[in-house]
Deep mutational scan, measured.
Amino acid sequence: ALNRGDKVRIKRTESYWYGDVGTVASVEKSGILYPVIVRFDRVNYNGFSGSASGVNTNNFAENELELVQAAA
């Protein structure tokens, strides 16, 4: 299972961040479909780089994520 702070690569092909590595911000335990919230260094097309207006978190299912580096 994934944990907060883990570095993960995104495998959801239609995602803006496909192939990117993000950090797990939190994992919901309530049984929702996309329980893993991942935070990225770059914002998506809703904002400009360096601006706070873009979105830099997204929810994924565990099977859409590949663990790159476990949290220390």
Rank of each mutant, 00 (worst) to 15 (best):
T23I: 12
A25E: 15
S51I: 08
D6V: 03
N59W: 11
Y16E: 06
Y45N: 15
N44I: 08
E62Y: 15
G47A: 07
K29L: 09
G19T: 03
S51Q: 11
V8E: 02
A72H: 12
Q69T: 11
A52Y: 10
S15E: 00
F40Y: 02
S15K: 03
A25C: 15
R12S: 08
E66F: 04
N59C: 13
A25Q: 15
I10W: 02
E28K: 10
S15W: 03
G47M: 07
I10V: 14
V43D: 09
S51V: 10
E14A: 12
T13P: 14
G31T: 11
G22E: 01
K11I: 09
I32W: 09
E28G: 11
T13V: 14
K7P: 02
S53L: 13
Q69P: 09
I10Y: 03
Y16N: 05
V21G: 01
Y45Q: 15
I10T: 05
V68S: 01
G50P: 10
V8S: 02
S30E: 13
A72D: 13
R39G: 04
L2R: 00
S53T: 13
D6P: 01
V55N: 06
R9L: 14
D41G: 05
S49A: 09
P35V: 11
R4V: 14
L65F: 02
W17N: 01
S15C: 10
G47W: 05
K11P: 01
R4S: 09
S49D: 15
L65T: 11
K29A: 11
A72C: 13
V36I: 13
K11Y: 05
A71P: 06
L33R: 14
A61Y: 11
E62K: 06
T57A: 09
L2M: 05
A72M: 11
N58F: 10
R42Q: 06
N44A: 09
N56R: 07
Y16L: 05
L65C: 04
G54E: 07
T13R: 12
A71N: 10
P35H: 13
Y16C: 06
L65D: 05
F60G: 01
K29V: 10
V8I: 01
V24R: 15
N3F: 09
L2V: 07
L65Q: 02
R12P: 03
S51A: 13
Y18W: 05
R4I: 14
